[in-house]
């Protein structure tokens, strides 16, 4: 069947919706949102890093761009969450395009360093920008009785969702599934094959007529845009935002560690990595301190990079190959 994958995606979205209606315990939506947000970050990172071989260390900067675009919009226009996410995606995508335009002519290393620099510059700027709360941060009250296309979305009695946590969880889940679809589409498209060629040898790709610069720019914009969409609901989720939570190092390390652990060559890698690592972190954070949690992520990343270069997916492929022989 031609549209098998698309049908599965739609079914998953319906399933997510059903979960928000059935499950009563809000805690699951609270941690589910975080895992799904990490998943979007990991998928976004992999579009450029896994397929094209360009490492982005500034994932937190792109996420924060989305988050602060949303905050500025709430202050300025009081628009709804969906509009915030679209705007956050566009602005972060443009930021990715600009960064790529400035540094992608150079070796990959410089792009990596530039993204780190970008995150610090953005953090400094945001800390001085009082309109969005400055260094002290600002609290965001979710809109009461929000509507989308004439339907009341969040209300305890009449809304589609009983409360905001369920709505945010459903939104992020839908975004994650759309991102999975996009990254899978890219993987099998001309863009993905071009990026793969760039990863193997940029010079050879250029010689074969691959428009390397254009492909890299498209990938940076898509990757940045996805991160911006993931970041936009952050302020509504936390009901508070400050530079420390938006530019958190956790995002930067997880966005790299999750694809690396799952496997960077395929769309499924970041998804598996995010599910495993994200769930493990959320569960273990209940009884161990968050620093120790991060230390474990760092160690797992280094170990995987050294002993399992293809990630978990690579293991499976290898063992399948082995048994077929």
């Amino acid at each position: 069947m031609k549209y098998k994958f698309e049908i599965i995606c739609l079914l998953l979205i319906v399933g997510l919706f059903a979960l928000t209606q059935i499950v009563g315990n809000q805690f699951y939506f609270f941690i589910g949102f975080v895992i799904l947000q990490y998943m979007v970050m990991a998928i976004a990172w992999n579009v450029l890093g896994g397929y094209g071989g360009y490492v982005n260390f500034g994932s937190a900067g792109f996420l924060a761009t989305g988050a602060y675009t949303a905050v500025a919009l709430i202050n300025f226009l009081d628009v709804g969450l969906v509009e915030q996410m679209i705007a956050g995606g566009i602005i972060a995508g443009l930021l990715g395009l600009a960064t790529g335009y400035l540094t992608l002519r150079l070796r990959g290393v410089y792009f990596a360093i530039a993204t780190l620099a970008l995150a610090i510059i953005l953090e400094t700027i945001v800390a001085h920008w009082d309109y969005v709360g400055g260094a002290a941060g600002t609290s965001i009250l979710p809109k009461r009785k929000p509507e989308l296309l004439g339907e009341l979305i969040v209300d305890r009695k009449e809304g589609i969702f009983g409360n905001y946590k369920e709505f945010l969880f459903f939104l992020m889940g839908t975004v994650a599934i759309i991102c999975v679809w996009i990254s899978r589409y890219i993987e099998n498209s001309k863009l993905g094959r071009g990026l793969n060629a760039i990863k193997d040898s940029e010079e050879a790709a250029e010689c074969m007529g691959v428009p390397t610069m254009r492909l890299k720019l498209i990938a940076t914009a898509i990757s940045g845009g996805m991160m911006g969409v993931a970041g936009a609901p952050l302020a509504s989720y936390l009901t508070f935002i400050d530079p420390l939570s938006a530019f958190n190092l956790e995002y930067a390390i997880n966005a790299i560690a999750m694809p690396m652990i799952g496997g960077t060559v395929s769309w499924a890698g970041p998804v598996i990595g995010a599910l495993l690592l994200g769930t493990a972190q959320q569960v273990s954070s209940l009884w161990i301190q968050s620093e120790l949690n991060l230390l474990i992520v760092g160690v797992v990343l280094v170990v995987f990079v050294i002993i399992a270069p293809e990630g978990i997916i690579g293991w499976f492929r290898k063992s399948r190959k082995g048994s077929a022989r």
Binding site: V55, F57, V109, I253, T264, V302
Partner: peptide
């Protein structure tokens, strides 16, 4: 493989040292 994985390796080291110091 130094470009992608080598960078991730050093990023991981950075992270381990920093978080270790925090702890």
């Amino acid at each position: 493989a130094e470009s992608l994985r080598g960078l991730a390796f050093f990023f991981g080291l950075l992270f381990i040292i920093e978080v270790g110091l925090v702890i």
